[in-house]
Design a protein around this nucleic acid. Structure first.
Lengths: 242, 242
DNA sequence: AAACCCTAATGATCAGACCAATGAACAATA
DNA sequence: TATTGTTCATTGGTCTGATCATTAGGGTTT
């Protein structure tokens, strides 16, 4: 038997494409080409199965994939079907959450990243925030104050998430807002599990922060935020280890 | 007929949970509880169908969902099955790409977000980058120089993506590295479609940038990067509109 | 040993069925 | 007439049960 030809060099590993992936790509291709736009409705699973010459379950897996990716939403019933969305950041926040749970990101790195993102958001917001933005944030803080710490932990958590969302909106940059949600929403679980931190007044810190923001004092706002984050991080680390 | 009882107040809209979602949640719950860790192998579709008292196709949709989310990978054959991953940022970059394609994020916002993220990455890298990091980046730039602009667009694009990835790695923060990839990888498509920009020397700019980084001169590095981004953005806008 | 073959396990796909929700057209009613 | 209830076709969600292709491991032959 002859020698194995080694000099042929690097063969690329063969990767079999699954049928549903091909379907996803074709649909994404139509989106990229501009033939499909948000609001459009794809043909039904049964129709597409015929068009693609595959079984319904295969189309189904493609639909499911696109749904999880936030590209379409699926509606039952007559006039239902797969409707193209404008996109959704849920997949991003979900993945971020998974990465935390799976230990691929440490809480340390996560917190640091939050600080980084918020520094930039604050910088943008200081330039662009409108009075409406400030008022919305102020209302959010007011509602946070109203809610007692003991009960209504759920609402309090939601208000915290909303606070950061409003701040992100004030940056007037949708991409940064999405990154902000990616780095904020996973907090929900921690806040729920660890309970409230009664050792200091969150609303007070946020009000001070808002004041700096209103004065467009970037550095002071960042400093207040960093202080806030540091305390929160210490609280979380302490809770988790105990 | 009596009055409609309006004072009952806010009924919460009923949302029916689909079976596969429940399965996903249970599996994610086990991960969160620490009963499942990366490397573990889930039971086969057939087994889980029995355990969950659902059909195989339902388990399959759950598996597909977790696969798309980067939580597991599916392997065929004996000893195959769903294996828990350490997580994957592919879902994040894919979603970011979708959001761009669907017009949910403007190229303007996207570029600005890139600048924001990279500012923070540079700041971290200036503090923490090691000689190995610098050398890896330098090698990357060297290879970029070698490749002629005309041919090998593909490789050139990959090297560009790798450049940002190496930079992110130098920040020593995995969360920021993931955000960086989210905001960098979607570029691949643009670079491929628009072709190379021959009007200025990319490698030269990157070398200058690396010099600033080595001297840990944060401000200069950021300035060089911003200049680079500005030119690239102008190039992309020009190409797209023409 | 090394190459080959067989087999069980497992995801990928297929085919066909029924269920549940949805909305629109239509009928019944006040 | 305006509202309410009914019917019906459409469509995703799920089920059942089957075949195929790939994979790893064990056994057999060379």
């Amino acid at each position: 038997m002859g020698e194995i030809a080694r000099k042929t060099g690097a063969f690329i590993p063969v990767k079999t494409r699954r049928a549903f992936e091909e379907i996803c790509d074709q649909i994404r291709g139509e989106i990229q080409a501009g033939n499909l736009v948000p609001g459009d409705r794809l043909p039904s699973e049964r129709d597409l199965a015929e068009q693609f010459q595959v079984s319904r379950s295969t189309v189904r897996e493609a639909f499911r994939t696109l749904e999880i990716s936030g590209v379409v939403t699926l509606h039952k019933g007559s006039k239902g079907g797969a409707v193209l969305q404008r996109g959704d950041n849920q997949p991003i926040t979900q993945t971020m959450h998974d990465l935390l749970m799976l230990g691929s990101i440490s809480l340390q790195d996560f917190t640091e990243a939050r600080v980084c993102i918020q520094k930039e958001i604050i910088e943008l917001a200081c330039e662009r925030a409108t009075d409406e933005d400030y008022d919305a944030i102020e209302q959010n803080i007011a509602r946070t104050s109203e809610i007692s710490l003991a009960d209504r932990l759920e609402e309090r958590t939601e208000l915290t998430i909303e606070f950061y969302s409003l701040l992100a909106r004030a940056s007037k940059n949708s991409a940064m807002a999405i990154l902000m949600s990616a780095i904020t929403e996973p907090l929900r679980d921690y806040l729920r599990r660890l309970g409230p931190d009664r050792s200091w007044n969150v609303a007070e810190s946020r009000l001070k922060f808002l004041g700096h923001l209103r004065r467009r004092d970037k550095d002071a706002a960042v400093a207040e935020m960093v202080a806030h984050m540091t305390r929160l991080h210490a609280f979380m680390i302490g809770k988790i280890e105990s």
